[in-house]
Nucleic acid binder design. Structure first.
Lengths: 341, 341
DNA sequence: TTGTAAGCGTTATCAG
DNA sequence: CTGATAACGCTTACAA
């Protein structure tokens, strides 16, 4: 059932049928009505592909999940919430969302994005990741005139179309909070410093200490992976340092959960003997014992904003804020408190 | 840069250029070579949309995540692993994956699938969900001749194109395992029985008891939601029953984590006083204290199989197994054991 | 083996 | 306001 059939049934030309269906502009009420009836009767659906060919617009947004190895379940959960936000917007605005998962290596080597754009398979691209993106990739994208947004990541040292969490500010707040509880020897167990989010958290830790007038001691900083086991080992490590820390900020909830378990196995009571904080407000922060004080990120909002921005870019409504930082929120539970209480 | 340009540069006709690019069939080696050079020089990428219009094939797979409300993080994680499997296959076979999230109500009311198919936006559809799907929706899909597969869900009472986890078998194994540890009063804390997976797990629980020659007692079964809090309350409840259970099988790891905490707050030691089991092998199963014995599902394999099957269907290679059940795996950790040990 | 031309279903331009 | 008609870029008979 094509528009032609509709036109035939309504006894009008193809052009008129198209006008009625699309804008109902400049067509007599009478014929307009006839076309509408035909549209109804034939249960007409426009052929999306033909429309795309004719208009040059696909109404497809492609989202690349840039996946580090090994795959981390914590990242998964984080990404999916962001994607949910993206979908809210794409659905509302009549876009389809194509999803792709690839390593940063794939993205750069095979040049999949540019190729896809060359084949005009999508109108814009969202790069969702946690590790730094190479500048030349973006240069390539810009050169091809393809609307893009970096989500939850960036190109170090450049200000581009990007939208991120305020990782740094969140940790500064965390350090201040611990300082207000009376802690002055605050340690850090971070994930890999090469990861963008983690780099910002490490930065925030140092800046927080500075703002509180506390000394920055290398011995109190541990770089681990993102795993529960990593957190476990790092806390054991940290406990060998003299003087010992009285509070530990962790790069994510998994590290914090591991640290918690290590503290327990060392015979410590949390938060009486040591305070421990996570980051992410992952579900597991609720099930540890004691439950983790942590930081919540506005994942869905991030996705929503990213989608709105790129659609604005696609549709030519220049969007002002090319760089946006979303604030996070401190969630206080049981794993932090005053020493000895 | 279109094929026309390539043809012009190579000094051949459009048709010949197309033939070289697609099948390199029936074209003289010499001109073939010329075309190839032009292809290279112009860095030709076929216009996907035009190709689609000409061939009538989109090479797009659409996956609907059927989302219950409220949104459960545990479901998210589960789905994403499945999707990852799907993407492995679509990437390898040259398909794009479109992702949509909607409630089952959306799907049925707005008839989005049929409309999308009518607009020929995709070649096939994967329905990923956990709640029963209405038969008429599938009837509609079949009527429209659209290849489909149900993933992780089904239409109750019908055998259709579907692929699921062996939830039932897994719980039977769990009950047997507990029975071998000497337990005879085995309780169940399930999620909503309306959810397909949970219904199967409840079935499995009953069948497992029967196979072990144990009595099925309603007082030892609690239907909760999927939350940690739900598990907490359910275990408290269960503890008021006389005689008390000595082991509790939970519908998922969240319920089990809540039950664990409740047991702790009741002053019990797990597994000495009571054994507790989860389901999913969610990350939080590693961080509870004690760590949860649970059941792992082959999520990625499920996705891979589903994608392979539907692509076979699309490409007309009749796939034999229209219904497939994937086996799960028992993961033994610390939360189960013999009574009093 | 090759070129020509007729689609594929729209949109959009341009006379009338 | 309306109807032809030319794109859009490709595939695929069909004819040469």
């Amino acid at each position: 059932m094509t528009l032609k059939d509709v036109a035939a049934l309504a006894g009008v030309s193809l052009g008129t049928a198209s006008r009625v269906f699309n804008h109902q502009e400049s067509v007599s009420p009478e014929r307009c009505e006839r076309v509408r009836e035909a549209l109804k009767k034939l249960n007409y659906h426009p052929h999306a592909v033909a429309k795309r060919l004719a208009t040059g617009r696909t109404n497809v947004l492609r989202l690349y999940m840039i996946q580090e190895y090994p795959i981390l379940p914590s990242t998964w959960g984080h990404y999916l919430r962001i994607i949910q936000g993206v979908i809210c917007v794409t659905q509302a605005k009549g876009y389809s969302l194509e999803l792709d998962i690839c390593s940063i290596g794939d993205l750069e080597k095979k040049n999949v994005i540019i190729d896809g754009a060359g084949m005009s398979m999508f109108d814009g691209v969202l790069l969702l990741g946690s590790w730094p993106v190479e500048y030349w990739l973006i240069v390539e994208i810009v050169k091809n005139n393809l609307p893009y947004f970096l989500v939850n990541t960036r190109v170090p040292g450049k200000t581009l179309n990007e939208i991120e969490m305020d990782n740094k500010g969140a940790i500064i707040e965390a350090v201040r909070y611990l300082h207000e509880l009376g802690h002055s020897r605050i340690a850090l167990i971070s994930g890999p410093a090469g990861q963008i989010n983690m780099a910002d958290r490490i930065d925030g830790y140092r800046m927080g200490l500075r703002q509180c007038g506390l000394e920055i001691r290398d011995a109190l900083q541990r770089e681990s992976d993102f795993t529960i086991q990593g957190g476990y080992r790092a806390l054991q490590d940290l406990w060998a340092v003299t003087p010992r820390p009285s509070a530990v900020v962790c790069g994510n909830d998994h590290l914090a959960a591991g640290a918690l378990r290590a503290a327990m196995d060392l015979g410590l009571t949390v938060p009486r003997d040591v305070s421990i904080m996570g980051f992410d407000n992952h579900e597991l922060a609720q099930v540890t014992y004691p439950a983790l004080t942590t930081i919540e990120q506005p994942c869905q909002e991030l996705g929503i904003t990213a989608a709105e921005r790129i659609i604005a870019l696609i549709e030519g409504n220049e969007c002002e804020n090319l760089r946006t930082i979303m604030p996070c929120k401190l969630i206080i539970r049981e794993s932090t408190g005053r020493l000895g209480v």
